Amino acid sequence: MWKEFKEFAMKGNIIDLAIAVVIGGAFGKIVTSLVNNIIMPFVGIITGGIDLTKSFVWAVGDAKVELGVFLQSIIDFLIIAFAIFFALRLLTKFNRKKKEEETVAEPVVEVDNKEELLKEIRDLLKSHKE
């Protein structure tokens, strides 16, 4: 069982997936910091000093609906989705070019007319012997 697990874990796809998850988590933290510390304060400056995370709060007792925080999450999502789209687009282009190069790289073997005639003569001689 350990051997099977080891083979499964050492496959390229699993390792690639693990690396992608770690990098994706770090990228998510960077985007969240970008939105919280740069984009939203800039939006606050444009709107005349309004802090959207504190201004758009609807509270009833202890329950709060924080629309500004939700807006930040939407901005986070849009930035991450765009970055993933862009990365996949580049990867697809790279793979397409690589496949085109592989198909072009295969040499086409052209048979010389003399060789073709010699093959026909050989086949005729074999047929006459039989």
Rank of each mutant, 00 (worst) to 15 (best):
Asn36Glu: 11
Ser33Ile: 05
Glu7Tyr: 11
Ile84Asn: 06
Leu67Trp: 05
Glu100Gln: 05
Phe5Tyr: 10
Asp16Trp: 05
Lys29Gln: 15
Val31Tyr: 01
Thr92Gln: 12
His128Cys: 03
Asp62Gln: 10
Lys98Tyr: 03
His128Lys: 13
Val43Ile: 12
Pro107Val: 10
Thr32Gln: 14
Glu66Trp: 00
Ala105Asp: 06
Ser55Gln: 13
Ile80Tyr: 01
Ile84His: 01
Ile19Ala: 14
Leu17Lys: 05
Val108Trp: 01
Leu90Lys: 13
Ala87Met: 10
Ile15Val: 15
Ser55Asp: 13
Leu78Pro: 03
Asp112Cys: 06
Val60Met: 11
Leu88Ser: 07
Lys54Trp: 02
Ala59Met: 07
Val21Cys: 09
Lys126Glu: 02
Lys129Asn: 01
Lys54Pro: 02
Asn113Ser: 12
Ala18Met: 12
Ser73His: 07
Ala59Lys: 15
Leu118Ala: 08
Pro107Cys: 06
Ile38Cys: 01
Val111His: 04
Lys114Arg: 06
Lys93Glu: 09
Ile46Trp: 06
Ile74Lys: 02
Leu124Thr: 06
Lys99Thr: 13
Glu120Asn: 06
Lys126Thr: 02
Asp16Gln: 11
Ala81Gly: 07
Val109Trp: 01
Glu106Ser: 14
Thr53Leu: 04
Lys119Tyr: 00
Ile14Glu: 04
Leu67Asp: 01
Val111Trp: 00
Ile23Ala: 13
Trp2Gln: 14
Ile14Val: 15
Met40Leu: 14
Gly48Leu: 03
Val43Trp: 01
Glu130Ser: 06
Ser73Ala: 15
Asp112Pro: 02
Phe42Lys: 10
Val108Ile: 12
Val57Glu: 13
Ile80Thr: 07
Phe77Cys: 11
Ala105Gly: 03
Ile15Trp: 03
Gly28Ser: 08
Asp112Glu: 12
Phe42Leu: 12
Phe56Gln: 03
Glu116Lys: 07
Lys126Asp: 02
Leu52Val: 14
Thr32His: 12
Val104Cys: 05
Thr32Ala: 13
Asn113Gly: 08
Leu91Arg: 11
Asn36Lys: 09
Ile74Tyr: 04
Met10Asn: 15
Asp123Ala: 15
Lys3Phe: 12
Asp123Ser: 13
Pro41Lys: 07
Asp112Gln: 10
Arg122Asp: 08
Gly68Ser: 02
Phe82Arg: 05
Ser127Lys: 15
Ser127Phe: 05
Lys64Pro: 01
Glu106Asp: 11
Phe86Lys: 08
Ile121Met: 02
Gly49Glu: 03
Ile30Glu: 01
Gln72Gly: 14
Glu100Phe: 00
Ala81Lys: 14
Leu52His: 11
Ile14Asp: 00
Phe86Thr: 10
Val111Ile: 11
Ala9Pro: 02
Leu71Glu: 00
Leu52Gly: 10
Pro107Ile: 06
Asp16Gly: 14
Phe82Trp: 10
Thr53Gly: 05
Trp58Asp: 13
Phe56His: 00
Leu52Thr: 09
Ile75Tyr: 02
Val65Ala: 15
Ala9Gly: 07
Asp51Ser: 06
Lys6Ala: 14
Phe70Leu: 13
Met10Gln: 14
Ile79Gln: 01
Leu17Pro: 00
Asn36Gly: 03
Asn113His: 04
Thr47Asp: 04
Ser127Tyr: 06
Lys54Tyr: 04
Asn95Phe: 09
Phe8Leu: 11
Thr92Ser: 14
Glu102Lys: 12
